[in-house]
Amino acid sequence: MFVRNGTSELKRVLTCPPTYLKEAAPINEISKKYADQPLDREKLADEFNQLIAAYHEAGVEVEQQTAAPEMTNAVFARDFGGCVKEGYILGRFKKELRFPERKAYEDKMKELGIPKIAEVKEGYFEGGDFAFLTEKDIAVGIIDRTNQKGFEELKEQLSRLGYNVYPVPADPRYLHLDMCFNLVDDHLAVAYKEGLPASFLKLLEKLEVEIIPVPEEAIFKHGCNLESLGAHRVLSLKQNKVVNKALREHGMKVIELDITETLKAGGGPHCMTFPLQRG
């Protein structure tokens, strides 16, 4: 079994160092603000090492993709696809900048012995839009990087395996679903509720998912870009003071990362992590 759901104990992940992330390519609302500013190489490396150290401390095995000059944004490993208990889904990037990552990550997954059980070939689908709600219920954002065609391809293939796949359209400025919604524990999520469709909010209510609300501006400061470790533990950003306080009040152990430079390229801890095994 590979990834059973989104909140059970995280055991193994795939990451990629930000070796060639030199400046924030203006491909999303956050990175546009920093496109003319070179990123601090030392700080990027330190932030990545913080993430890896946090995983090791939590008992999570870390695999690494080899960085390459043509894969500037490969540090955001989440985006090449998704992973379920049967194997992984190979997505399809929308931005040309990220095209070289697809083959590299496909080769890496083959090397790791994880079978490809689905693939998006015609539409677009990126892993930041993939979210387990329960073991059999999966939400897929149709926001900026995943389109209707990609969603339909994904739904058709996952439905054969018994999964219920739900579309979650939202404002393209939010980039990915994990920027405005994130399940952090069983029946507990962090989200900008007003930016999510009523049908999705009703589904969450039906599934008894409680939402810790964040304001819209938190989306652009990675207030929802958290990574569940299972056993009521979550990785968050040190700057997420209000969210972290609320998480602790809900019984969560919050592990804070002092990441600020990597965020300028448009992604946080969730974006930097591709789960390989949860159970």
Rank of each mutant, 00 (worst) to 15 (best):
A118V: 12
A198P: 00
L158A: 04
E217Q: 13
E261M: 13
R12L: 01
P18D: 05
C271H: 05
I52L: 06
N225W: 08
M1F: 10
I143M: 01
E23T: 13
A35D: 02
D36W: 05
K32C: 10
P115Q: 13
F130P: 07
T72C: 05
Y34D: 02
T7Q: 02
I117D: 10
R78A: 09
K11D: 00
I259A: 06
L97W: 09
T15S: 01
P69A: 05
L196M: 11
C180E: 00
K193G: 00
G267D: 06
D129H: 09
F2G: 00
L51H: 04
L183F: 00
P18H: 10
D36A: 13
E153W: 08
P215I: 05
Y105P: 06
N240R: 13
M252R: 10
A118I: 11
D185M: 03
P167T: 12
K202Y: 00
Q148F: 01
Y192P: 00
C180T: 11
L247Q: 10
E96C: 09
G113P: 13
K95P: 01
G91Y: 08
G267E: 03
T146L: 06
Q50L: 14
N147H: 09
V120P: 09
L14W: 06
L44E: 03
I27E: 01
K33E: 14
V243S: 07
F125D: 02
V84D: 00
A246M: 15
P269K: 07
E261F: 11
K121S: 14
D137I: 13
L201S: 06
V165D: 08
K202C: 03
E156L: 14
D40T: 12
R41A: 15
K32F: 05
Y124K: 12
V13A: 01
I142A: 03
L21N: 07
V209Y: 04
A131R: 13
G113K: 14
L158G: 04
L263N: 14
D144Y: 01
L203R: 12
E153Q: 14
N49Y: 01
G91L: 12
V13H: 02
Q64A: 09
C16Q: 00
T262P: 06
N182V: 07
K22Q: 04
L51K: 09
A68G: 09
I255C: 00
V75R: 03
M71W: 01
L226A: 08
E61N: 04
Q37A: 09
I30Q: 03
T262K: 06
C224I: 10
L263C: 13
F130D: 03
K121L: 12
T262M: 15
G279F: 07
F48D: 07
V190Q: 02
K202I: 02
K108L: 12
S228T: 15
E153A: 08
G223S: 10
P69R: 08
